[in-house]
Amino acid sequence: MLALLLLAAGPETSAVDAENAFRRAAQAEGQWTAFRKFATQEAIVFLPQPEKAQQALPTLDPPVAVQWWAAESFVACDGTTAVNTGPWVRSKAKGYFTTVWHRREAGWKWSLDHGDDLATPRARPAKVAMRKASCEPITEPVATPVAMLGSKSGDGQSPDGTLLWHWEVSAEGARSFDAWIWDGITFVSVVSDKVAAPT
């Protein structure tokens, strides 16, 4: 049954395909229009505090949309959840992004998007590095990270538990995002983003 639902979900067969479709929609339809179109109803962005994307994002699209490309994609064993990360560019600005994706009956949707500026841009990859979690049974307990006192935080995982993530934001707006993937023996850190508080 799940296989039939996934086949009916749409042309994007992977989170990388979804990322590419998202980027193309931003260029064709408008940046914030595309962000809302591809977001879940519960999706969050950081401004710098966590906000519901559907309500918090601007309604007016900028004249030129940001461009971005997945460089790495970390996928749960069951294929329903992924974390993509890679470079973005906009006029004279550049940086990186990290996005959490979920495959739903209606197609891929993102639930968390964040990133930061960089002084030196990351290279656009010739080919996306994809890493899938092991499907071996999970044998170690998963410890829930404890957020710093006074911070806002959240945790998530794929339905099969093979892809985990945690984010937190301090009162000053400093932010971290971490993701781990099950390799058949232990959970391995695959993304560790740290964003300084705004000045």
Rank of each mutant, 00 (worst) to 15 (best):
E168T: 09
V146M: 15
L5K: 13
F22L: 00
V146S: 14
E19P: 06
V169I: 09
A28G: 07
H102M: 01
G156Y: 11
L47G: 15
S134Y: 15
G154M: 07
A8V: 07
P141E: 05
V128Q: 06
G30D: 08
L60S: 15
V83F: 02
K152S: 15
G115Y: 08
P48E: 05
A143L: 12
K92H: 14
S14W: 03
A82P: 09
H166C: 13
V64A: 07
Q67P: 07
A196T: 09
G86T: 01
S111N: 09
A179D: 11
C77R: 00
S158T: 05
R175L: 11
P48Q: 00
R131Y: 12
A21Y: 10
E19K: 01
E19L: 09
W32F: 14
R104D: 15
D117S: 06
I185E: 04
D17S: 14
A39M: 01
A133S: 01
L7H: 02
A147D: 06
P121I: 06
A65W: 01
H114I: 04
A174W: 01
A28L: 14
A171L: 08
P48V: 06
A147S: 12
A106D: 05
E51K: 06
G161V: 08
R103H: 13
S111K: 07
V100F: 14
V16C: 08
V66R: 10
L149E: 12
S170D: 14
G161Y: 04
T40G: 07
L7G: 15
G161K: 04
A70G: 03
T120D: 14
F22A: 05
R131A: 14
A129K: 14
L118M: 13
F74G: 00
I181N: 04
T59A: 09
I185M: 06
A76W: 01
A143S: 15
S151R: 00
G107N: 09
K127M: 06
S14M: 08
S91P: 05
